[in-house]
Amino acid sequence: MSTKRPADAVRWLRPDEERAWRAFRRIMVAVQVGTERDLAVVGLSGPDYEVLSTLSEQPGHTSTLGRQADKMGWSRSRLSRHATRMEARRLLRRAPDPADGRGCLLQLTAQGLDALAAAAPAHVDSVRRHFVDRLTPADLAALERIAQRLEGP
């Protein structure tokens, strides 16, 4: 069954909607490029930092690969490949998941925690420079409201 809709049934974006969509995309790219460039200076990629920071929030700095992938919005295969590279750098380790014979646990290592602690000040500074400090408190509140509306089902 085809999911294509006839061109005349498509709700094309109005000019103001298209401008807003393109502005949103430019914001995402600019902030991501800036923060990832700054993280590279301290030896981490944006995805490295995301894995380390989200694992650091888990009890015992441990999570199942599946739960971690879901939390990050990644596929399991993407996270598995990235975890392999991080494991080679001793930032995390894998362990069998006792609750799922096919799954594994991701555990933050002491070296991973140290890398996160060393990168966090530079990351926060970067987020401030590329995002927070360029906006007013009203802008930040509006973005928070928008995010709440977009995060739902």
Rank of each mutant, 00 (worst) to 15 (best):
A30Q: 15
R149W: 00
D16K: 06
R102H: 12
L150K: 05
L106V: 08
R14A: 10
R81Y: 11
V132C: 01
E87D: 15
L143Q: 07
R129N: 06
D70P: 00
T54A: 14
D38Y: 02
A99P: 02
R89D: 12
R67Q: 11
D16Q: 12
P96N: 09
L108F: 12
P15I: 09
L13D: 04
A117P: 00
R128G: 02
S77F: 07
H130D: 00
Q107A: 07
R129P: 01
T62C: 10
A115R: 10
R81I: 05
G73Q: 06
L150D: 00
Q148W: 01
T84Y: 14
Y49V: 02
A23I: 01
V51S: 02
A40R: 15
S56V: 00
L13Q: 09
R25W: 05
A23P: 02
D70Y: 00
T62M: 07
V124N: 03
M72Y: 07
M86E: 11
R37L: 12
S2L: 04
G73L: 03
P6D: 15
T54R: 15
L44D: 03
R14G: 02
D97I: 06
L116N: 02
V124A: 10
E50T: 05
L108I: 08
D70L: 10
H61Q: 12
R129G: 01
G73S: 04
A23E: 13
E18F: 09
E87F: 03
L91V: 04
Q32G: 14
Q107G: 01
L140W: 01
S63A: 15
T3H: 13
A118Q: 09
R26N: 10
G73A: 04
V127E: 04
G112K: 07
F24D: 10
V10P: 02
V10W: 07
R89N: 07
A147W: 04
P137L: 08
S77A: 13
L143H: 11
D114N: 08
A120N: 04
P98V: 09
G34F: 08
T84E: 15
S80M: 09
G60C: 06
R14Q: 11
A110W: 03
Q107S: 10
G152D: 02
L91A: 05
D114M: 08
V41I: 14
T35Q: 12
A95S: 15
G46I: 06
F24L: 12
V132K: 00
A115W: 03
L143C: 11
F131E: 00
L13A: 13
R11M: 11
A122F: 01
R81L: 11
M28W: 05
G101L: 07
M72H: 08
S56M: 01
Q68C: 14
L135M: 15
V33I: 10
A83Y: 02
L55V: 08
T64I: 03
T3K: 08
V31L: 12
Y49M: 11
S45A: 14
D38H: 02
L92F: 09
V29W: 05
D97Y: 05
L135W: 04
L106K: 07
R19V: 05
R90S: 13
P137N: 04
S75C: 04
P153H: 06
R11T: 13
V127D: 00
S75D: 07
A122D: 01
R90P: 00
